[in-house]
Design a protein around this nucleic acid. Structure first.
Ligand SMILES: [Mn+2]
Ligand SMILES: [Mn+2]
Ligand SMILES: [Mn+2]
Ligand SMILES: [Mn+2]
Lengths: 217, 217
DNA sequence: TTATTTTGTTAGATTAACCTAACTTTTATT
DNA sequence: AATAAAAGTTAGGTTAATCTAACAAAATAA
């Protein structure tokens, strides 16, 4: 049985590992991501190692074990199912669900998650477009393209957002953009990488950073 | 902001206070109820006192303050709304919901509870027949009669159960009894206080303790 | 009213999850 | 290769929530 804190570490670890191609990360990055101090992380890593959830040697890189990875995916599964519940059934807005799901993801009851999944009609993705792992901790990952890579003149469709922060999501909503929105790239500025896009017949100028966080197909 | 543990103490305190008419209780009873040691309770009471949630002097009786009582009722509110959700929407059985709700009741989000309440259609009572306090921490308490007090020959209707344990509730279900079941008292045994009842045209012999935990009107 | 039992308190430990300050190792930069 | 910077570790503390063992007060029974 994992504690809330351990679950959060595993989730953070998987997140950082997926982010940085090489499937490994370090103490400082993990601390930064969790908003705590490296010294604390160091202690916890020793604990996670004795529980065989991570592979880790002094001064070495941190990796998730097979089991650690599975546990992390099961937490993500819970998180995304709860987010879907909050959005679909309770009509929370896009940007509010993450925070509450951070708490709900730690409820311990396999039966609850199974029943919740059924209640929601076995959704494949959460309201941010992220895939929901199955009960075995397996997740289909499909190729996602950033809006940045779309050539000028073509039209694409939003399938997911990379950043889940309330601030970013509110901004996206304000522009009338949501999952499945059709986005046309009108032009790109070489100067700062920003681009002009059209959504629902309205045009907007958005920064490079903004576009990078919209994942399209 | 209250911790999970503090919330559990307040809930336990209210429970024991309501149980024992005089609106007060002691360290040992509280410890017993929470499944921990009196020494631990003693420490926590000091903490709850500094937070002005209980009234308490060394060797004296323990009482909830106005605010403590309100907080306790808000936890009960959350508990009962979640139980209703688990029962009505996820189709958990009567005896499974309490345990999961023990966890869910600690999720911190007022908005979540408001939306949940709306989603459930503003229920007045949980699946055990217990009233659900409102957002201000006010709860309507209605008079409940134990099945024991029903005279031989008369018919009554189950409105609530006193004991929420899985064991008791499973037993009740096995006899085909649920909320709103019509129960006829056929006879009473003076010897051990047990009684013969009829539900759905089936007769059963039940103990005094069993009957005591069925609340009827 | 004294003795016994029950109830409640204190002191001293433990564990999980955090911290700061000081130190060590590894990596990057001159 | 030497030095500086970054990354990681250790030692020693703190707080919340728990425990055991010993003690004190209150309630009950003899
Ligand atoms: Mn979390
Ligand atoms: Mn999400
Ligand atoms: Mn609880
Ligand atoms: Mn209930």
């Amino acid at each position: 049985m994992l504690t809330n804190t351990e679950e959060n570490y595993l989730k953070a670890l998987l997140h950082l590992m997926l982010q940085s191609g090489n499937n490994e990360t370090g103490t400082n990055k993990l601390a930064e991501h969790l908003g705590i101090k490296p010294a604390t992380v160091n202690d916890m890593l020793k604990k996670l190692k004795t529980k065989k959830l991570v592979m880790y040697e002094k001064y070495g890189k941190i990796k998730l074990s097979k089991d650690g990875r599975k546990q992390a995916l099961l937490v993500i599964r819970k998180h995304r199912l709860w987010e879907t519940f909050l959005y679909e059934k309770l009509h929370f807005s896009w940007d509010e669900i993450h925070e509450v799901a951070e708490q709900l993801e730690h409820i311990q009851s396999e039966k609850l998650i199974e029943k919740l999944e059924k209640f929601l009609g076995y959704p494949q993705a959460d309201p941010h477009g992220d895939p929901i792992p199955d009960a075995k901790g397996e997740m289909k990952t499909y190729q996602k393209t950033s809006l940045l890579e779309i050539p000028v003149g073509s039209i694409c469709q939003l399938v997911a957002v990379k950043d889940n922060s309330a601030m970013f999501l509110q901004y996206v909503s304000e522009l009338g953009i949501g999952l499945k929105s059709k986005i046309k790239v009108i032009s790109k500025m070489d100067f700062d990488g920003s681009l002009r896009i059209e959504v629902n017949r309205k045009q907007h100028n958005v920064s490079q950073k903004f576009a990078e966080n919209l994942l399209v197909k």
